[in-house]
Write a protein that binds this DNA or RNA. Sequence first.
DNA 1: ATTCGGGATGAATCGCGGTTCAGTAGGGAT
DNA 2: ATCCCTACTGAACCGCGATTCATCCCGAAT
Lengths: 220, 220
Amino acid sequence: MSGRGQEPGAGSAEARGRRRGASGDKRERILSAAIRVFAQNGFYSTRVSEIANAAGVADGTIYLYFENKDHVLISIFEDRIGKLIEVMKRTVAEATDPREQLRRVIALQLGQVEENRDLAEVVTVNLRQSSTLLKQYATPLFVKYLEVIAGVIAAGQKQGVFRADLSPRIAARALYGGVDGIMLTWALGEPEPKALRKAAQHFTTLFLRGLSPEGGPDAG
Amino acid sequence: MSGRGQEPGAGSAEARGRRRGASGDKRERILSAAIRVFAQNGFYSTRVSEIANAAGVADGTIYLYFENKDHVLISIFEDRIGKLIEVMKRTVAEATDPREQLRRVIALQLGQVEENRDLAEVVTVNLRQSSTLLKQYATPLFVKYLEVIAGVIAAGQKQGVFRADLSPRIAARALYGGVDGIMLTWALGEPEPKALRKAAQHFTTLFLRGLSPEGGPDAG
DNA sequence: ATTCGGGATGAATCGCGGTTCAGTAGGGAT
DNA sequence: ATCCCTACTGAACCGCGATTCATCCCGAAT
C-alpha cells in the first residue's frame, strides 16, 4: 500500500541469474509455498512464518517480494487465476461448437484442479474471504471469468444450439457454481482423482442437457 | 471446548421472564448481530467488540452465551442452517413429484435468502473458512443438506422422471453449487430482489431440463 | 430497608504474529 | 586482498484484539 517495493531481482542483476541457484525463482517459491499452506490452514490461520518456512526462506524475505501478507494472496489470484482465464480463452477459441466449448471449459477447469488440488482449495475457499481488499482484486477476475462463459452461451443461443429463454449470465453463474461445488466437495473430501473426472462427466451431461433447446440429447 | 458454560437464563429464572424486557433474547440478539457484522466484514475481520456493539451488550456478555468467537459462528450454523434443513425436509414432504420437490427446494432456499441477505453472505462466505474447528461443525450439516437433495433426485430416477445415468450425489452438488453461485453473485452484487427471483426461475428451468430423461421439456 | 444472587459490564491483561531493520554473507570488481 | 553492493536473515518490536474478572446493578426475597 505504500510506495516502496522495488522488488529485488527486478533490476539487471536478476536477468543474468545471480546468487546460489535459488535466487531468481524465490518469488515463485514463496507463491507456491503459500498456496500449499493456505490450502492447508486457510489464509487467516496461516502465519507468515509458516509460509517462509515452507518456502525455505526467512520471514523477512517475504517482504522483499510482497508488500504484506494480503498481497501474497492477491498475487496468487493474479498469477494463477489470470493465467487460467487466458488458457480458458484460448481453449474456447480452439473449438467452434458452443457445446464443445463448454465441454472443454469444464474439463479444463476440473483438469487443472486435479493437478493442483491445493490451488483449488485456495481458490474455492479464499476467493470468498471478505476483506475489502481481496474483494477488490478477486471480483474483477471473477467477472471476467463469468463473461467468457456467458459469451459462449450467448453465442450458442444465437446459433440455436442452446435454448434462448435463459439468461446467459445466470447460466454462467450456474456453471461456475456447479464446477465450484464439485471442486469444493472434492477438495474437502476424498482424494480419488477418478471421482473428480466422473463428476466432471456427469456435470457436463447435466449442464448441456439443461441448455439443450428441444429433445436433442447431449452428453460429453 | 472446555466444560463450563452454564449459560445464563438456562435455569428456571429465564422461564418466567426476568429482567428488563431484553433479557431472555440476549443470545438471539447477539446471534443476529453477529450475522450482520460477519456479513459486512467477514468473520476474521470482525472484532468481538463490534458484535457486542451491534448487539447492544458489553464485550464480556458475549462470553456468557458463547464459549468464544469461533462458537458464535458455529452457533449461527447450528441454529440457522439446522433450521433451514428442517424446513427443507418438511417442504419436500409437502409434494410428491420430485420435479416439484426440487422446484420448491430451490425456491425455498433462494426465498429464505432474499429475506435475509446477510445470512446468505455469512453462509456462502464463511462456510468455507478453513479453520479445522469450523469444518468440523459445518461439514456434517452440509452433508445432511446434500443428502436431502440427493434423496429427492434418486427418488425421481426410480420413478423415471429423471434420467438415471447421473449420480444423484453429483447432481446434488451441482444443485447446491448453482444455488450457491447465484447467492454469491447476488450477495456481492446488485441488491435487486427481482434479479434473485429471475435467477431462481432460470436456474430451476436449467436444472430440471438437465435432469429430464428424454425430450420432455420442463420449466418452473 | 436490607441482603442475596446472578446477570451484565468494560477496562486491563496478555499472548500472538505481522512487520521491521540492523546486521550477515557472498559475489563481483579493482 | 579489500571494498562495495545487495539479497537475505531472523530476533525484537509493537499494536491489536480475544478473553478475563473484579465490580456493579437490579430484582426478588425476607
